[in-house]
Structures are given as C-alpha cells and as structure tokens.
Nucleic acid binder design. Structure first.
Length: 860
RNA sequence: GCGGGCGUGAUGGAAUGGUAGACAUAUCAGACUUAAAAUCUGAAGGGGAUUUCCCCGUGUGGGUUCGAGUCCCACCGCCCGCACCA
C-alpha cells in the first residue's frame, strides 16, 4: 500500500483544478451566486502563517458553497501602495515599484501551493495604473458630486528632515529618524465628506445582522452621535470680536456646577490673546508640540493657562467664571470650547484640583451608600445616563430623574429662556486623504494660476507615477516627497485654459485603495471603475473575513465608499452596505524562546534551535530557555513560522488543517511543532483508512446501521460547524468520526459510503487529500464539484436518551428513558434513583424540575 | 486617557442558562518489535475515601436563578483600535 505523500498528490490536484477551471467565477442565472472575500494582503515580502489561516477560512467557505451549488466568486489581490515600499527604497536603495512587484511575485508563488480555490484571473494590485487610474476617475466623480473638498488640517512636521510624518513615525513626540521634537503644521488638504453620512452610517448598522455585535458597537461609538446644548458665555472686557464664547455640552443638566470655561490653544480667542501675552504664546506653542494622535493628547498631563479673562454664567450675570486655555480641548470637536463641571467629569476634576477651582455637585446618587462627594475629595460622579439620580442643583425637570430626562429638560428650558439651542453632533470627522508621499495614487488635480484648482480630464487618466527623473531612477534616500522635487512630472497644461500649470503632488491615503477593491473584483478589467451588470450580479460580498484591527477605519471607509459610488452611479442601490456578513478572525501566535545575554538584554532563539522536553526548552548546549507562550509573531522576536517551510515538511493540507483545528477562528491560535506533527499524522491515518476501505470486500454486518448513523451525525455536525464558523468544532467531529470509522466492524459497502462522506466533509479543509481518497474510493469527478452530502433527519434521532439527575444543582445520578416519556413518569424514575435517595437522606423533595430531553433537577 | 474584546486542566481548547474539561497536544501504562521509530489499545482536573462515594474547581469578589463557564455589578490581568501603519 502506498503512503500518504502530499508532495506528490498536492501538485497533481492543483493541476487538475487549473485544467478544469474549477474555481473560475462565471456568471450564470441558473445558480445562486456567492461572493467570499478575505481582506487582501499588503505585499510585505513573504506570506505569513496568519495569511494561511485567513485565506484557509475563506477557502473553506468558498469550497463549501461551490459544493452546495453556488456560483462562487473568491478573488485575490494586493493592497500594494504604502510606506514600507518607500522605507525599503530609503534603507537599501532600489525603487518602491520594483520592490512591490517582486514581493507580489514571491507571495503569489508561495500562495499557489496552498491550493486555495481562488479565481486568479481576477488578480490585481492597487499600484497597477489600470486600478489607480479608475480610482482617479472615482475621485473626479466624487469631486463633481460634492463629496470631496479642500480645507486646512494639521500634520506632524519633522523640522529636521523637513517632512511630514505619519503617526506611526512619531515616537514619544519625536521623529523616528531625526529624533527631533515633532511640530504641528497646517497644510491645505483634500477631504472626503464622510461626516455628511454620519447619521446614515450609524442607522444602517442596525441592518447588518451578520456582523459581530462588537464591531457594530465600535463603529457606533466611533461615529459618536450626541445630543447636547450649544450656547454662549458673554465675556467681560474681552478683545473686540470676542464678546461671546460658544460652547457645546452633552451635559447641560450640570450647568449649575460650572466652574470654569476652557478653550483650545487653537481657539481664535487663544490665538488673539497670545499676540500680546508672551507667556500664553509660549504655553500655546508648547501645547502645539508633540504628536497629533488622540491617544497622545488624552494621556498628556492636563495643563491650563489662566487668561485672566472672565465670563458671566448664562443663568446669573453676577456669577463669573475664569477662562483657561487647556491642552486637552480639541479645536475640531464641538466649538473648541467647553464649560468645566468638575463634579461630573473626571478630566475636569483633575484640572480643577490642579488649579484650585470650585467643585460643585449638581446631582447625587439616589442610593444612600455613603459615597464621598467630589467636593469632599471623592471621585467625579458620572453614572450612566439611564440611572435615576437626585438633582441638588437642578433647574429643569423633576428633582429625581434620569440623566437622559434631565438633559432633555435642560435643553427645553434653555431654548425657552433664550440660552442656546439643542444640537445633534457627531464625533466622526471628515476623512483627510492627502498624503505627502510618492508611493500612492496621485490625486488627479491641477493647480493653475488663472483657474485655481482644476480637476484633470478623464481622458488624461491614469495620471501615472513617474519611475525616473531625468532618465535616472528617483533617489529615495532624500527625505520628503520625490514628486515635489521631480524636474518635469509636475508640469502640465491646465485642463480648463490650456496654460502651463502644475500637478498636485499629494497622493491618496492607502485606505482609499482598499475602500473599493471588493467592487473592482466583480469586473477587474473594465475600462470604468465598475461594470454595473457585473456589480449587480456579484455584489454584495456575502462573507467578508479579516482582522478585528480593521473593525473601525477600513470597514467604515468602505461603507462610505459604497454609498459614494452609488451616488456617482458606480454601484447599484443594493450595494450601499457592501458586506452582508463579516467575520473577524484571530492571529496565529507562537511561543518566544529567550535567554539573557551578557548585557542583560533578552536574546531570542529560533524554534528550530530549541529542544522541547517535559514542557521546558533547551538549546543545543543544554542551556534552558525561557518560554513565553502565545506571542504575536514578530521577526525581531525570532518566533515567525514560515509557511513555505511547513508546506515542504508536511504539505499544504497539514498546514491548512492545523491552523483551523486548535482554536475557534475568532480567537488567536498558537502554532506548535507538535500540533503540526499531529495534524500530519492524522491526515496520514485518514489516507491509510481510506486505502484499506477501498480495497476491502466484506459482507454487510449488523454494525452497518450504527456506522451510517454516525456518518449522518458527522454530516450534520460538520456542516453546522462550517455554516457557523466553528471550524475547530467541525474538525473535532471529523477526528471523532475517523475514529469511529477506523474501529467499525461494518461491511465494506457501508464503510466505503462513510469514507466517501469523510472525503467530502474534509474537502474544504484538506482539499488535496480529499480529492485523492475520493478518487481512491471510486468517487465520480472532482470532490470539489461533488454535491455536498445531506444528513437524513431520521438517522439523527436516538430512541433512548440519558438524562442527568441533579439534586440542588449537583449531579447525583442519571436515568435512561425513551425520548418522549412524559414528565410525571420521568420525575418518578428520577426520584427513585440511588443517587437521589442518598442525597435527599430521608428528606422529601420540595420541587422537581424536568427539562424534557435535557435534565432533571430535584430541589430539596 | 477613551472605546471594544478576552480570561476554563500541564497546554490549545469544548460546552442553545442544564452531566464542566468534547477533540487534540504533552505525559504515563500496555500491545507489536531483538531494539527504536511508526502503528494500535488504554489511563489521566485537584484533594480525600479506596471498585460503585464525598469535597473543591472555569482570573478575583459579589448578585440573579431550581440550576451560572455562560446573565448582571465591581475589581485584576492581557489583547485590539484611537482617524497619516497596513
């Protein structure tokens, strides 16, 4: 008998799929369509075991849907623009384009041996001019539709390298290469008007039934709808034009607890006052240093500067409040000014204590639990708005009411008394897409002295990136954007007046590239961004799979893009929510093996250099290593597993089986050598069993029925596992069913039937092995195309069931009863058991709960 | 700092509010073998009693329930995101 040899069978079946175009997506009306998509990879260089897991999950779905009679679209491409290509060119010469395409070639050649059922004919990279040219066309249509505009926005500026830095390149407020303290600089940039769709993007989350609740919640919080009061404090002796300070608050019910007014360092009043106040100017300048991330701002120590200016409280003109400039107030949320209520906001409380400002509670807990009030040194009191509290300094509504009711009452009161008006605000900001970098999609506009900012003509698209300058390769070792200093690329004719003009040198955020690729896959060679017929047929993506790290930005931007593409006629109405179902998968992790070097720093060791014995690890020289389990794979920690090596050692099916087997798909899975070994052994066993069954000639036996019942259970459970993304549970069932088959004394016909079902059930996970044993067992055609087996209901039900019997929730015995025995009968049997008699110890039961088919609980 | 999630044997994990630990790894024992590998069979949460039993046990502390790993509250730890990383 031949042995299981993946290196022989895997290429054979891959060639068969290729020959028969098994996974080519073809439109036809006779079958339902199914579009499954995994988030496409960045071409970083080599594929990672995490990619293997991600694409294997999608492949299981794709192959399962093919077998259940769907036209399946399962494409692959590359998210190919971005900083790493420029960094590589900067670090080791070469050109981002060459680096990127060479990486793509490598990764494709590494992915093909994994046997994914992909339609490779649809592949593209976002750095292909054919793709980004269509993206430029989309941009022009969005511009015409009023979905894009220009405004000033701040960027991180490295004053030494004279270049804009990404947030990632700012480390502890300093530039990553120069080490210089980062400054903020204003530039005119392009923005997508995503905020116009805030309400719609929020409301539509409700309809996404097959998205994880946590992702919808994160998006809802990110969009951040709030209802509040906008009103003004009148200033006392303020500079001209600043007699009012507009503030926005979501807690107008706490107005009587106001203790100060805070304005952003970028507020017009702060900018005015700093002109003749050098101390304030220095304070503001200091606030404008450091990174621009929300995290950096929130974590920074709360600092303020007393302007000396005072304002009057809107309810009491005799009540004056100081005006501080404070570093934690953002100019681009609300009005750039707040009123501080320290009793009910932890941040305001920290600030008030630091600057010795009054703390006044406006409401208190309705439960008398002896809370320390904030004015007595306790924490800020911020109960959920749904909780009923007692207003000690209320001015509208009831004394005892929920925060939400108090807010509504406060807004009504203020509106009636001419103090401001209720407004709805969103946290979501417009999406700035300009990047001052080379390796991205050029923004197709022209700057003309006479005509201003002019869109490029569509017939001139794509506006392609220049490869050379003056016939020599662009020099990336110089910081800054090479497009800016390119000798000729900027020169062009104004599309409107024809006079000499210059191109925009900013390129687009790479999130733009990934916000519509799923639509492009439906017609990847169309000479318009999409083909409406193809989009109408293939869209939406029925199942989208990717990492939780994309829960907010990528998914929100894609949802915006789908709407914008509908508005501009590039997608049908039904595509406004482009992803019907979303699944967020976990990472593949690996232990880290480390020892301490002579300098006390950790030294990391490759897994192949470590021997594992009794749960401990040793180097070749006997030194014990410290094992850190389940760490994110990282090149610098030497704990990266290379899929190529795994395929060479065990074959693709083993890699695919293992990444699905050990953990639920949404959780991280730890790659272990022993786990991979075990997967390989199991597949070898399946092969042996199938080969044995294929050659057997035995008469039917009394055990045929039992085996076939197990087969139907396996069909039912494995199918259920695949449908619900419980791949690990499906695999556990397949282990169990394989054991049953191996031990079965059934006749050869029943065994062959069971083995063929096993081949089919395994085919989405281990497609090559499944094809091989399917052929061995005399299966017709490719198992990939064979109709998925269906479990017979009648074979799934047992006549007799075992019920556990509990006393006070603790299991004491069990009874075996016919499945439809009535409750009274079950109760009688349960009470008669030894375990119950013993546990009751003469006492009489107070109550007996019988859950049919489940459990019996005796309450003593 | 803010938003979201996770926490179960030595290990990865299973468990529509209903027998906690399926399945697998590692471990131990046995079969086959001159031996090893491979393969096959079996044991196994902790503690006590010793064949059939009892107690404890799902990060910690409370709560709801006939019944909680699962639901609620608080805390601890870890992970993801925070708008120019992809």
């Amino acid at each position: 008998m031949s042995r299981y040899d993946p290196s022989a069978i895997e290429p054979k079946w891959q060639a068969a799929w290729e020959d028969q175009q098994t996974f080519r997506a073809v439109r036809s009306e006779d079958k339902p369509k199914y579009y499954v998509l995994e988030m496409f990879p960045y071409p970083s260089g080599r594929i990672h075991i995490g990619h293997v897991r991600n694409y294997t999950m999608g492949d299981v779905i794709a192959r399962y849907k093919l077998a259940t009679g769907h036209n399946v679209l399962h494409p692959m491409g590359f998210d190919a623009f971005g900083m790493p290509a420029e960094n590589a060119a900067m670090a080791s010469g070469g050109h981002p384009k060459d680096w990127t395409y060479s990486n793509i070639d490598t990764m494709v050649s590494q992915m093909k041996p994994l046997g994914f059922g992909l339609d490779w004919s649809r592949m593209f990279a976002t750095c292909d001019p054919e793709y980004y040219g269509q993206q430029q066309a989309l941009f022009l249509d969005f511009l015409e539709a009023g979905l894009v505009y220009r405004k000033n926005a701040v960027v991180n500026w490295d004053p030494v390298d004279m270049t804009v830095l990404a947030n990632e390149q700012v480390i502890d407020g300093k530039g990553w290469r120069s080490g210089a303290e980062v400054e903020r600089r204003e530039l005119t940039q392009w923005f997508f008007k995503i905020s116009d769709m805030s309400e719609e993007l929020l409301d539509a989350l409700d309809g996404l039934d097959d998205w994880p609740a946590k992702v919808k919640l994160m998006q809802a919080n990110w969009i951040g709808k709030s209802r509040g009061l906008q009103f003004a404090f009148s200033t006392i002796d303020a500079p001209e034009g600043h007699d009012r300070i507009e503030v926005y608050t979501t807690r107008p019910d706490t107005l009587m607890g106001a203790s100060f007014v805070g304005i952003s360092p970028d507020h017009p009043l702060a900018r005015h006052l700093e002109q003749d106040n050098p101390d304030l100017a220095a304070f503001n300048a200091d606030c404008r240093k450091g990174g621009t991330t929300e995290e950096a701002l929130e974590k920074a120590e709360k600092r303020g500067f007393d302007t000396g200016l005072r304002v009057r409280h809107p309810f009491d003109t005799a009540w004056e409040l100081p005006v501080y400039v404070a570093n934690f107030i953002l100019m681009d949320y609300g009005t750039g000014a707040i009123f501080g209520c320290p009793a009910h906001d932890p941040r305001d409380l920290e600030f008030a204590r630091k600057y010795d400002l009054p703390v006044v509670s406006t409401f208190a807990s309705s439960e008398d639990e002896g809370h320390t009030l904030p004015e007595d040194g306790g924490p800020a009191y911020v109960p959920p708005k749904t909780e009923t509290v007692i207003y000690v300094r209320g001015f509208a509504g009831e004394t005892e009411q929920t925060g939400a009711a108090a807010i509504d009452a406060a807004i009504d009161f203020c509106e009636q008394n001419g103090v401001g008006h209720g407004v709805t605000k969103f946290r979501l900001r417009d999406w700035g897409l300009s990047r001052q970098r080379y390796w991205g999609c050029p923004i197709p506009v022209v700057h003309c002295d006479a005509c201003g900012v002019v869109p490029e003509k569509k017939e001139n698209l794509p506006i392609a990136l220049p490869y050379d300058e003056d016939g020599t390769a662009i020099d990336f070792s110089v910081p800054g954007n090479p497009l800016d200093r390119h000798p000729t690329w900027r020169d062009c004719a104004c599309p409107t007046c024809g006079q000499p003009a210059t191109r925009e040198t900013d390129t687009m955020d790479t999130f733009v590239d990934s916000s519509w690729y799923f639509a492009r896959f439906t017609a990847p060679r169309a000479d318009t961004p999409t083909n409406l017929d193809d989009a109408a047929y293939w869209m939406n993506v029925d199942q989208y799979i990717g990492g939780i790290e994309h829960a907010i930005l990528h998914l929100l931007y894609s949802r915006f893009f789908a709407r914008a593409m509908h508005v501009t006629g590039h997608l049908p109405e039904k595509c406004k929510e482009p992803f019907n179902a979303l699944f967020t998968q976990g990472m593949v992790t690996h232990a880290i093996y480390q020892t301490k070097g002579a300098d006390g720093r950790p030294v990391y060791h490759y897994p192949e250099d470590v021997d594992l014995r009794d749960g401990k690890g040793f180097l070749k020289d006997g030194t014990e290593v410290q094992i850190i389990p389940s760490a994110k794979m990282s090149k610098s920690k030497n704990n990266v597993v290379d899929p190529v090596a795994i395929i060479q050692q065990y074959g693709a099916d083993t890699a695919r089986w293992f990444v699905l087997s050990d953990s639920p798909p949404e959780r991280d899975v730890e790659w272990t050598a022993s786990g991979a070994e075990a997967a390989a052994k199991h597949l070898g066993r399946v092969y042996r069993i199938a080969a044995e069954v294929a050659g057997a000639e035995e008469a039917p036996t009394a055990e045929d029925d039992a085996l076939l019942r197990e087969m139907h259970k396996a069909i039912h459970d494995v199918t259920g596992g695949i449908e619900s993304f419980g791949f690990n549970a499906s695999i556990a069932k397949l282990y169990g069913f394989t054991n049953t088959l191996a031990k079965s004394k059934a006749g050869s016909d029943a065994k062959r039937q069971a083995a063929k079902a096993l081949a089919q059930l395994m085919s989405p996970m281990t497609p090559h092995l499944a094809e091989e044993i399917w052929a061995l067992l005399g299966g017709e055609g490719l198992v990939a195309k064979a109709p998925w087996p269906v479990a017979e209901e009648a074979m799934l039900v047992e006549d007799t069931i075992t019920l556990p019997v509990q006393v006070n929730g603790k299991r004491r015995d069990e009874i075996s009863v016919p499945k439809d025995m009535d409750k009274a009968e079950v109760e009688k049997l349960a009470l008669a058991t030894d375990g119950v008699t013993r546990a009751l110890d003469g006492a009489s039961p107070r109550k007996v709960i019988v859950v049919p088919g489940r459990i019996v609980n005796v309450v003593a």
